[in-house]
Every structure is written in C-alpha cells, then in structure tokens.
Design a protein around this nucleic acid. Structure first.
Length: 1155
RNA sequence: AGGGCUAUAGCUCAGUUGGUUAGAGCGCUACACUGAUAAUGUAGAGGUCGGCAGUUCAAAUCUGCCUAGCCCUACCA
C-alpha cells in the first residue's frame, strides 16, 4: 500500500525525515557511497558561534546545501567539513562588555591569560543553537569534525603559510611578508590604533568645530615657475586649506589636480595688506573673492579695508604647477633630502574643487592619501631621527609636538588631550589657533576661520583620533596584483558583476594587506626579532620552534623547552603538546639569534581574515597531515557566502592561494544578498523586525522556507522576507505536489497498483497525453540540470513549479482523472498492462515516473519533502527493488542517481500539438463563460478556421482531449475552400524592419488594410510586390502575421493565430444530457458529503420532477455508471434525502444510501 | 566621496539578439469546475516599464545625465 494522508503537514514531514536521516546515517552514506576520486569540493566559510543565528543564515546555508546535494545526486563525493571562526574583534568586544573591562585593563585588572580564557569560553557559546539550526533546516555539513581556528593545529598551518610568504621573494628580492608602517587611526589618549570597525561604531563620527587655515606657500623663482612671475620680485603664493593646522609644520608638498584649472590672482594680503599674487583653483575663486571686488581700484586700497580688490591675471592647468618648489611654511625641521626633493607641487587625481582651494596641503605622516602621494612622487618624509636612525613624526605618541618644533614643543595638538582644567582655563588657546596666529603674524595666512565638520573619535576615550604612522606587518599583496586579477578572471562569479566590478575593480587598486593587530585573542605572529632589529626569524611549525627553543635553552635564554613532552611544564604550567600557542604563553618563548642575541616575538597578532583565508589548508592541518586529502580538495569547486564577504573571506582565500600556490582557491562562487524584512528594511533586534529562524521552520517547515527563499528571487538579490510568501510556496507548490501524490496513492491502492520497474509499458504504447507529460518531464530534467550547473537555483525552482502546477496537476492529472476513476477491465495474462488494462497501467506508470523525477529534481532545495515523496513512492516495492538491485532500491532520494536528460523522450511536435489543445480549450471555455453556458451542458460543434494543413493534422491528433475537456460533440475545420474565412494581416516587424527602415510605418498601415485576395495571392505565389513611398518591396509570407476574423453568426474567440468558434445552439437532447451531468454531480457531492467510500455501491432515489425526466429517460445507465448506483428510482416524495438546488428554477429531493 | 547593485500592476517577480496587445503568481471582484483540492479555470479591475534627453523606421530593452533605495570601501585637505 502507498501511504495516504489527510492533510499536508510539512513540520511533521520534517520531523519524520530528520529522524530517519539520523537513524540511517543518510548524510554520511550519501558522501561515502561516492568515489573519492570524483570529488566536488566545497568549502564552508565558518560562522562565529558567539552570536545567535538569524534567518539570513538559513538563506546562506540553503544556497550552500543546494549545490552540495545537487552534485551528490550527480554522483560526486561532496565532503563538507564544518568549521568555527573563533578569533576576532567581535569576540573580544563581547568579552570585554561582559567582564565590564576595557582594553587598558588587560594585563592590569585581568591577566592576558584570564582574558584569553574568557574569549575561549565565549566563542562556542551558541554552538548548540547553531547545530540545532543546521539540523532543523536540513543543512548537511559535518558537525562532528569541524575545524576550529583557535586550535593549535589550525594555528600551526597558518604559521606555515606565513613562513611561506616570508620566504617568498618578489623580483626585487623583497619578502612577501614585511614590516612597515601605515597611516592608521590612532588614539593618543588610549595609546592604541583603532580598526575601521571601531571607527564605524555609532557615535564615533561627530561634528566638531576646528580652526581652519588657508595658508600661503611662497613659490620659489626658478625656470619652471617663471610663467607665474610677471613682475620682478613679485610675491607669488599658492593657497592651501587645512582643517588640521597642527599638521602644517609637517608639510612637505602641495597636491594639485593635473587637469583642474587654476588661476593666478593679483591682490593684497588680507591680514597685512601687502601686495601678493595668489594661486588657487579657478572654480574656487568665488569662495574667496567676491565678484564685486574685482572692479575695485588697486590704488585706493589701504591695509585693513574690508573689501580687498583683486584681478585674475591668468589661468592654467594644474600640471603646469607640478614640480614647482616653494619655501617651507614652518621651517622647524628639514633635511638635505627634503631640500632637494621636498617642498614642491605634486599631482593627485583625487583632488577636487568642492571646497578648499583645489590645492591640498600634504603631510605624509598624518594622512593615508598624503603618504601614498608622497611615496609615489618620491617626496621624502619629514621628521626627526630616533636612535636607530628611523625618521619619527613631529608629533609623539601622546599627541604632543616634539622639542624640535620649538614654538610649540610639548603642546598637545588637539585641545581635548589636555586635562579638563587646562582646557577650561580662561586664557587657554588650542594649539591649532596658536599656529594660525603665528602664520597670520608672519604673513603666511590668507584666511582663518572656524569650521564645523565630522571628525572620528575614539570610542573608548571619547577623544579625537589622529591619523598617525604605526608599525605593522604587511603581506605584499600588491606584488601579485596582476596575477590575482588574471586568476580572478577564471572564476565563475554569481552574479558576474561582483567578480568584475566589486571584486575585480578593487583588485586593480590593491594595496598591501595590513596583517598586524595589537590585540590578545588571535593567531600570534610567528616572528622573533632581536632588540636592535638586525636579526629576525619567522617560524613555520611547532617542531621548528621547539628546535629553536632547545638552542635558546642551551644559550641560557630559556629555562626549559615547554614543547618537549619530556620537559617539565613551562613557567605557565602547560607543557608538551598542550602548550597553548596563544598569548601570553607564546610571548614567554625567547629564541637565540645566529649571533647569540636573544630574540623576542613581535607582539602583534594577525588579522583574523588570515585565519579564514587559510582554511583550505588549515582545516586539514596541511602540510603536517592529510597531504593527499588536501591535494584532492584544492581548490574548491564551489563556495558561497554573503556579498559582504567579497573583500573579506573571498579576498583572503584568493590572496593566500595566489601568493602561496599560484592558484585560485575556488572555481565557482555565489555571493548572496541580504535578507531584509518585508518592507525592505534591514532586520535588527533593536527594530524588532528580525524573523526567528526556529519559529519560521517550526511553523512552515524547512522546505517551504527554503523553497520560498530560493524561488522568490536570485540568491544575490536582496530578499524581502515575508512569511506570506512561505505560505504561498507551501500551498501552491508543496500543496499541489502533495495532492498529486495523494491522488496517485488513493487510486493505486484501490486498484492494487504497484510500480514494477521491470515491467514498464514502452512509451510508444502510451497515450498522447502520457507521452506529452513525459516529454515535458525530460525537458524539465534538462532545464533544471542546466540551471543548477549554472548556479541558478531560482531558475530551477521556477521551472519545477511550472511543471508541477501547470503541466502535471492542472493538465495531465485533470485530463487523466477519468482514466484512474473508471473501473478496470481486469484483464488477465502476463506483461505490462495485464490486470489493470493497458491504458490504466500507462497512466499509473507515467504519473509515478513524473513524481519520482520531480522529487529528485526538487531534492536539493526541498530535501525533506523530496525524501518523504521518494520513500512513499518506493516503500511498497522496496523489498523487491533491493532483491533485484533496481533503481528504486535506495533508502533515500539523496542516495539515488539523478535522472539523466534523454532527448529520445522529448517530442517537440507533440508539445506543440498539446499547446494548441490547451489554447483551443482555453478559448472555448472563455466563450462559454461569456455566453453563460456552463461546462456540464454539452454543445454540438467547435469550428476552427485554419490557414494551413499542418495545423489540421496536429489538432486532429489531440481532438478527443479537446472535445472531452470542453464538452463538445464534434470538431470541424473551416478552410479557405469554404469561402467563409475572412483574414486579416499584420506586419511582421521583425522581418520587415531591417528591409524597410523608414518605410516601416507606412508599410504596416498598408498591410493592415490588405484584402482577403491580397493575402491569398501572397500565400499562393509566395511573393507580393508592394509599393510604399515610391519604393517597391517584395513581401514573402513570413512578412505577414495572418489571423482570421470573427465568423458572423458564431460565438468566437481568438489568441494569436488561433481562432475558435462555438456552435451555441442548445437542443433538447443536449439539455437532457447536461441535466444528466448535473444530476451526477449532485449525487457525487452527496456521496462526498456523507463520507462514503469511493467504491461504495449506492441506491439513488430522485424526486419526480418534469425537468429531469428527459435526462433520466435518455441517460439512465450513464447516471448509474458514474455514481456507482445499483438502482436509480423515482419517487413522488423523497423524505429522508437532501434538498438540492439543480438550477435557478428547480430544487430537487435526492436520497443516496449505501446498498 | 568612490565602486557596485536595484527601480516593470497594490505585493513578489519574469521579460531572449531592440520588433508593435509588456506577462506570471499572490491579493481584489464576478462567474464556473471539482469523488486529488490549503487546489483549479474564465473574465474584470489594476502599468506615463523611476525621471529627462539621445540613438533608431521601432526603446522596458542600447547610450548619456539625473533621482531614490541598498551594499561595500573611504581620514577628502
């Protein structure tokens, strides 16, 4: 028996199938049964388990699951190792919040050891919740052997990769891992650098009012600047604006836009009244020189006048200024290098004229753009040399000017750094103002004013940050810029523009990867250095480190080797293999340099993104273990994550694979979009609009949730998550498929049908309808495979939906219903069709095949329902199937081989014929609707005006389907020969457009007016010459779209080239037959209401009424047969029966009792 | 600010190489069908295809500019 169900209950199906999967280890078997050498490699981008999973994780993981399952069905071995991301700032912040501490407290109120213990304890906080979601949503991933980024093995693989980078050299002999500095947000108050993440925290950017200065830089007269000097001894100055006057002592260059227009303006210095010529962007003139002052006479000007006369003398492009030298603005510190190559004008594409003067004051130590521009154009750094000979900025780490800046030595550059009482003192002046005043006094300032602008603040100290040079270790990613771009072009990105645009464009401007993080919980940088920084060593494995420690022990720098299993525990109490590679323990490891000096570890940790990008290697502890396994599993065939990972995980995977292995890390990548609420707003806990994934799955079932998410929009589009959409998926797709299965089960059980794989009726002996749905089915197989192969799951879902709804349920099952319903001939004998009769067997086998294949195709997206369907379909034959090792033997649909595309089962001509049938039926039904002729009332004739013979032949083969569907007795074709056909023609724009060009419009009008004779002549001769606007064109039949017009006296409807006409005359015979059908319908409804069995025989008593007598006379047996009535009797009164409305006028008593 | 995406019916989305009635589902209205019914059919209402300009015989589709929303990146002086 096939299982039958009352109602669709997807959550119950989830529970049943989940239990089954776990009991029978279906996931493990689905992997293990496929050969190792046919791997489809998938990498799991690890989630962090210190936060709770949300509905967007269901989306992201559904995408991953779908393609893994699909490729499993195609016969590949798809290992899916789970993983956990355990390092990183979010974890540290959470721990600090919970402990009520800040970063400064680490090492004071709490030891690093305790702190790291707290991190370690919190990272897996919600692991159980995550595991539960994984189970409930049907995401198949190996949770038993996940990789965990804080484990020693994982860290060791990271070290190995770092050493590989350290040892690799560019063409110039530069290491791919090097120490340098970058300009980073730095909080002098906290004494620490800040990440962009920290800077983007709410409230960090605040509007502040600073003193802004437009400074005047005096141009030196030389050959290149001669064009600026129109009179001897002229005072020519370039204007540059800054909101940070404290950076002016560090100015070394001015940056101009090479293509920006600049002007030289003759005027007077506003503060001193001295004549001066100023250079600034032409577009910025109105900001500094009011138009009315242009006409003021120069000779009348007196120092101190409010309105300063000016005159624009000449304009030129920025590139003409490039290379000019100027006098240092505040000459506190200089150097021979600076005198030679500094204090000059350089070009920069990023310069704008939106504010300021179109000239950017450039101080490389205090701006990232400035630093880049100076490096690019060979401008030396400005600063003082420390004892190691390195140039240090003019502002120290506390945010004070160094002594060399004599006038301001020891002054804090930002007022906020002073203690509160100093700031509040009456005569307190911020350093910026003091600098401005000095410039004014020295005739170097053009304008000083307060300026309000957003400025970033440290989230811990609430004080402004500086951009400041900080030491960092870098990966020289820029050295592989070209290669990364090249390899990227071989990756299949979904959507494509993420790869070419967001990712590709970014690779083109790739900067070196800043690896350093001054934190505690993460992978320690495995680099040891002597104090004088002349000797250093990068460690690539624990074994290597242990060997080095042995030397250090011998040299007396270490008491014992903590890595040695035989050694006594390390000072921290953990020795041997248990030695934790994290801080603080690793910081206690001191090595000895070749020259015998002690080397200490560089205290930085590495960016956690390096952790995740290392997972292809570190998940297997490569190269220390699993070398073969790694080889088989690199690179990945497929990865998927959110589009926000583009410059995160996607990049770090790509960068490490390119730099270390000259390979891509993944071949196909799906970057999925955001999950928003139904109004398109971002989901967040604070807004209260975040959907709970557990609730959603428990209410609607995992499959409906998954199906909705995937079918609604492509994964890379943002999804507006609306539970109403899940309901729609459930009702429309799963409901229909469920009903179709239930229908099959109901009748198969009544008939005792069981699928017999070894006794299948050949397709050629099946009906037109059967072969049609089979053809549609194998079209579907091809379409769905193509879609999944292209990583287009949405297309796959939509195709499956259309098939199930429109083709299978609404056409095939609807039209086949009678075939299942009518009693079997119960023929005897052997072979296909024996027992039930050939037609019925064909119907069962066809429907079975459709359900089976649809289940397979839907399995990647709807793994629970598909397995439920498969198991229900195969349960009755499981034992025989196993015994005979047939395709139905598998325990689960996920262990089967996906249906192969089979062109021999596709019949395009048949599909076209059926398409005609569907359109003709639809038209005929619309006529009935218009004329209020209900479908139960039979009609005499359907008339089809036709224009070509092939059409007749094709329609004829589906004639019976049409007639029974629309309840009409005969079908006739109306051809040209009848002379009744009135044709109209429309121009075919596609074919004619190219030929006709401008004459197209007139020709269209001309064709619309064609007579029957003209159309016939063209069709007969295959050509017709038509003149339009003096040009004669030869039209071919293809150039016309011919339709037939309404037939006078007939009810007609048309759709494109098809027109149908219906004979709407109703005779007494037809009325009687219609009445008979009405009676059957009412009796059936009573049977249904009374819950009779489908096979119950009944006795029907009808009230004697004149309206039904003709029907009873002529269709007595028909009514009995349809309703399984043994007796059909008339009575003057029906006392115990139902009163049924037969039509508007007639109400009838009917009694139906089981015989 | 830069890069990227999106914009089509009340809602969610299709819409091929540009081609003349711009489609589907949901929702709404009316009618029908039904011994598979949380289903289905027919019809109706509902569109300046975000705006402007251009290319073209012809633009939802190609080009440019603009607007709005979102994502990523970013110390614009």
């Amino acid at each position: 028996m096939y299982r039958e169900f009352k109602h669709l209950n997807l959550p119950a199906i989830d529970a049943e199938i989940l239990q089954f999967w776990e009991d029978e280890k279906i996931f493990e078997r689905s992997v293990a049964q496929r050969p190792e050498d046919q791997a489809f490699v998938f990498y799991e981008g690890p989630p962090s388990a210190n936060g709770q999973p949300g509905i967007h994780h269901v989306m992201a993981r559904a995408v991953k699951d779908i393609f893994c399952r699909y490729h499993t069905l195609k016969g590949h071995r798809v290992e899916r190792k789970g993983g956990w991301d355990t390092h990183g700032l979010p974890i540290e912040l959470q721990v600090e919040k919970e402990l009520g501490i800040t970063k400064e407290d680490i090492g004071k109120k709490i030891t690093v050891e305790e702190y790291n213990q707290a991190c370690r304890a919190t990272v897996m906080r919600y692991k159980d919740l995550w595991d539960e979601l994984t189970r409930r949503m049907g995401y198949w991933v190996d949770l038993n052997n996940p990789y965990i980024t804080f484990e020693n093995d994982y860290i060791e693989s990271c070290w190995w990769l770092l050493q590989r980078l350290y040892d690799k050299r560019t063409g110039n002999g530069e290491s791919l891992l090097y120490k340098g500095f970058t300009i980073q947000p730095y909080s002098p108050a906290a004494g620490t650098g800040l990440s962009t993440h920290e800077l983007n925290m709410p409230g960090c950017y605040r509007d502040v009012t600073d003193f802004s200065v437009v400074a005047m830089f005096k141009v030196k007269p030389e050959a290149a600047s001669a064009f600026l000097f129109d009179t001897a001894g002229e005072d020519v100055r370039i204007l540059a604006w800054t909101t940070t006057p404290w950076t002016l002592p560090s100015n070394v260059a001015l940056t101009v836009g090479p293509n920006i227009a600049y002007a030289k303006v003759r005027t007077f210095s506003p503060y001193t009244g001295a004549p001066v010529s100023l250079i600034l962007a032409k577009d910025r003139l109105p900001a500094y020189f009011p138009a009315e002052n242009a006409d003021l006479p120069f000779e009348n000007f007196q120092a101190g006048d409010k309105n300063v006369p000016y005159q624009v003398e000449k304009t030129f492009h920025g590139k003409q200024l490039v290379g000019l030298h100027f006098e240092q603005l505040l000459p506190y510190v200089s150097s021979p290098e600076l005198e030679k190559d500094g204090f000059r004008v350089i070009p920069g594409d990023w310069v704008t004229t939106e504010d300021g003067t179109g000239v950017v004051h450039t101080a490389p130590y205090f701006g990232a753009d400035d630093m880049r521009a100076c490096r690019e154009h060979g401008v030396p750094m400005i600063g003082i040399k420390d004892d190691k000979g390195r140039i240090q900025p003019l502002v120290d780490k506390q945010g004070r000017f160094v002594p060399e800046v004599t006038d301001f030595a020891g002054f804090y550059v930002k007022a906020e750094y002073y203690p509160a009482e100093v700031q509040q003192a009456k005569d307190f002046k911020p350093t910026d103002l003091l600098i401005a005043v000095k410039l004014k006094d020295e005739n170097k300032a053009f304008r000083i004013e307060k300026y309000k602008h957003p400025y970033p603040h440290c989230w811990r100290t609430d004080k402004p940050v500086l951009y400041y040079p900080l030491d960092s270790w870098f990966i020289r990613a820029s050295a592989a810029r070209e290669r990364m771009a090249e390899l990227n072009r071989t990756i299949n990105w979904k959507p494509e523009h993420t790869g070419t645009g967001r990712f590709g464009a970014w690779l083109e401007n790739l900067q070196d990867w800043n690896l350093s993080r001054s934190r505690y919980w993460g992978v320690p940088l495995p680099i040891w250095r002597t104090e004088d920084e002349t000797e250093e060593r990068c460690i690539g494995s624990v074994e290597e480190l242990s060997r080095e420690v042995d030397k250090a022990v011998a040299a007396g720098f270490m008491a014992a080797n903590p890595f040695s299993p035989t050694s006594s525990p390390s000072p921290t109490g953990r020795g041997g293999a248990a030695f934790d590679l994290h801080r603080p323990y690793i910081d206690d490891v001191i090595l000895v340099s070749p020259s015998g000096k002690p080397m200490r570890r560089e205290t930085d940790l590495i960016d956690v993104w390096f952790d995740s990008g290392s997972m292809p290697y570190a998940q297997w502890h490569y190269p220390f273990e699993n070398q073969e396994k790694w080889k088989r599993n690199f690179p990945a065939d497929f990865i998927a994550e959110g589009v926000d990972q583009t410059r995160g995980w996607f990049y770090t995977l790509h960068a490490i694979a390119t730099l270390c292995f000259d390979s891509v890390a993944f071949k196909n990548v799906v970057s999925n979009g955001l999950v928003l609420d139904k109004n398109g707003e971002k989901m967040s806990k604070s807004k209260g609009n975040a959907a709970d994934p557990f609730d959603t799955i428990a209410t609607y079932g995992a499959d409906a949730t998954r199906w909705y998410m995937i079918s609604n929009a492509a994964p890379w589009e943002n999804l507006k998550f609306d539970p109403a959409g899940i309901v729609e998926s459930r009702n429309k797709f799963f409901g229909t498929l469920f009903n179709t299965y239930n229908f099959f089960a109901l009748y198969a059980n009544l008939d005792g049908f069981k699928m017999d794989e070894f006794n299948v009726l050949p397709y050629e002996r099946r009906s037109e309808l059967d072969r049609w749905i089979i053809s549609k089915l194998y079209n579907l197989v091809a379409e769905v495979r193509t879609a999944f192969d292209d990583y287009e799951p949405t297309k796959a879902c939509r195709a499956i939906e259309t098939f199930v709804d429109e083709h299978l349920s609404n056409w095939y099952v609807r039209l086949s219903r009678r075939r299942f319903w009518k009693p079997s001939p119960r023929s005897v004998g052997e072979g296909p069709g024996a027992g039930l009769g050939e037609d019925k067997t064909a119907a069962y086998q066809t429907l079975f095949e459709c359900l089976m294949v649809v289940g397979q195709l839907a399995a990647p997206v709807a793994p629970f329902f598909a397995d439920w369907l498969y198991r229900n379909l195969t349960a009755p034959v499981k034992d025989t199937a196993r015994a005979k090792n047939s395709p139905l033997r598998h325990d689960s649909v996920h262990l089967t081989d996906l249906a192969q595309p089979d062109p021999s089962k596709i019949d395009a001509a048949l599909e076209r014929r059926m398409d005609y049938a569907q359109r003709i039926c639809s038209l005929a039904l619309s006529i009935r609707q218009k004329d209020k002729l209900r479908v139960r009332l039979p009609l005499h004739k359907l008339l089809l005006p036709v224009v070509d013979e092939r059409f007749i032949a094709e329609v004829d083969s589906v004639k019976n389907l049409i007639l029974s569907e629309i309840n009409v007795k005969t079908l006739e074709y109306l051809t040209d020969a009848s002379g009744l056909l009135k044709k109209t023609a429309k121009a075919n724009f596609k074919t004619l457009g190219a030929k006709l060009g401008k004459d197209m419009k007139d020709m269209a009008a001309r064709i619309a007016g064609f007579s029957n004779d003209e159309i016939n002549a063209l069709e007969k001769n295959g050509m017709l010459a038509v003149a339009v606007n003096g040009t004669t064109y030869a039209l071919t039949p293809d150039d016309l779209l011919v339709t037939t017009e309404d037939l006078p006296g007939w009810a007609t409807a048309s759709d494109g080239a098809i027109t149908v006409a219906l004979d709407v005359n109703v005779t007494p015979e037809l009325l009687a037959e219609g009445m008979a059908r009405d009676l059957v319908n009412r009796i059936q409804n009573i049977r249904k209401d009374k819950d009779f069995n489908v096979t119950d025989r009944v006795i029907v008593t009808l009230e004697r009424h004149p309206a039904i007598l003709p029907a009873l006379e002529q269709f007595h047996d028909y009514i009995k047969g349809e309703t399984l009535a043994t007796d059909l009797v008339l009575a003057d009164d029906v006392l115990d029966g139902e009163r049924v409305e037969l039509n508007d006028e007639v109400t009838l008593g009917i009694e139906v009792v089981v015989n």
